[in-house]
Simulated assay, not measured.
Amino acid sequence: MYLIVIAWAYVTLMMAVAEATSPNGTVLGAIITFGMYGLLPMGILVYILGTPSRKRAIKASEAAEQAAYDEAQRKAEADTAHPADIAQPAGESTLPDAGSEAPAATAVGAAVAVRKEP
C-alpha cells in the first residue's frame, strides 16, 4: 500500500515542479496541482486501504479491555467470597435471595388489584 502512495507522491510532485517551472505556470498552480492530484487522492486511498487494520486494532483493544474487566471481576469475587459460599457447589445456595434480585413488585404506574369488601 505504501509503495503506491510513495510512487503517486513522486509523480504528483514532479507534476507540481513542472507546473511551477514552466513559463506559463505559477507556484499557486503547482500547489493546487499537488493538493488536488496528489494529497487528496492519496488521503482517500490510505483511508480506504487502512480500514481493515483499524478494525483489527479496535477489536484487539476491546478484547484486551474485556479481559482486564473479567480479571478484575474474578479478583473482586474472590476477595469478597464468604466461607458459606465457598462450601456450596456452584449455582446452589441456602440463602433465600442468593441471586441478588429485587423482590417481585408491581411496575411503576401499574394498576393494583383491590378486592371489594363484602
Rank of each mutant, 00 (worst) to 15 (best):
residue 29 G to L: 05
residue 30 A to W: 03
residue 34 F to A: 14
residue 8 W to C: 01
residue 40 L to N: 04
residue 34 F to D: 04
residue 25 G to R: 06
residue 47 Y to H: 06
residue 31 I to V: 15
residue 34 F to M: 10
residue 46 V to W: 10
residue 38 G to F: 02
residue 40 L to M: 14
residue 44 I to S: 03
residue 30 A to T: 04
residue 18 A to K: 10
residue 26 T to G: 09
residue 9 A to D: 13
residue 17 V to Y: 05
residue 16 A to K: 03
residue 25 G to K: 02
residue 29 G to A: 08
residue 35 G to Y: 03
residue 34 F to K: 05
residue 30 A to S: 13
residue 36 M to S: 08
residue 11 V to A: 09
residue 13 L to R: 06
residue 25 G to F: 06
residue 40 L to S: 10
residue 37 Y to K: 03
residue 47 Y to P: 00
residue 22 S to R: 09
residue 19 E to M: 14
residue 23 P to K: 10
residue 31 I to R: 01
residue 10 Y to H: 02
residue 29 G to S: 04
residue 42 M to S: 11
residue 37 Y to M: 13
residue 35 G to Q: 09
residue 48 I to T: 09
residue 25 G to N: 06
residue 48 I to Q: 07
residue 44 I to Q: 08
residue 48 I to A: 14
residue 35 G to T: 12
residue 7 A to V: 15
residue 19 E to R: 06
residue 45 L to M: 15
residue 22 S to N: 12
residue 40 L to K: 02
residue 8 W to Y: 13
residue 15 M to H: 04
residue 18 A to R: 07
residue 33 T to C: 02
residue 13 L to S: 15
residue 11 V to F: 12
residue 9 A to M: 13
residue 16 A to V: 04
residue 49 L to W: 12
residue 23 P to R: 04
residue 46 V to L: 14
residue 8 W to T: 08
residue 42 M to E: 14
residue 44 I to W: 09
residue 21 T to Q: 11
residue 22 S to I: 08
residue 47 Y to V: 06
residue 33 T to L: 08
residue 13 L to V: 10
residue 40 L to P: 01
residue 33 T to D: 07
residue 21 T to S: 13
residue 10 Y to Q: 10
residue 21 T to F: 09
residue 44 I to K: 00
residue 15 M to E: 12
residue 9 A to Y: 10
residue 13 L to P: 00
residue 7 A to Q: 12
residue 19 E to P: 00
residue 26 T to Y: 03
residue 21 T to C: 01
residue 7 A to D: 11
residue 33 T to M: 10
residue 38 G to R: 07
residue 36 M to L: 14
residue 37 Y to G: 01
residue 40 L to A: 12
residue 15 M to I: 13
residue 22 S to D: 12
residue 37 Y to V: 05
residue 18 A to M: 11
residue 10 Y to C: 13
residue 17 V to P: 00
residue 36 M to V: 11
residue 48 I to D: 01
residue 36 M to Y: 05
residue 8 W to Q: 10
residue 49 L to R: 05
residue 19 E to V: 14
residue 24 N to P: 00
residue 27 V to T: 11
residue 21 T to R: 05
residue 37 Y to T: 03
residue 15 M to V: 09
residue 22 S to H: 15
residue 27 V to I: 13
residue 30 A to R: 03
residue 9 A to I: 12
residue 38 G to V: 04
residue 43 G to K: 04
residue 39 L to A: 15
residue 45 L to C: 06
residue 22 S to T: 06
residue 48 I to H: 02
residue 46 V to K: 05
residue 25 G to Q: 07
residue 17 V to W: 02
residue 24 N to H: 11
residue 48 I to R: 10
residue 39 L to V: 15
residue 27 V to Q: 09
residue 29 G to H: 04
residue 23 P to E: 07
residue 19 E to L: 02
residue 37 Y to E: 01
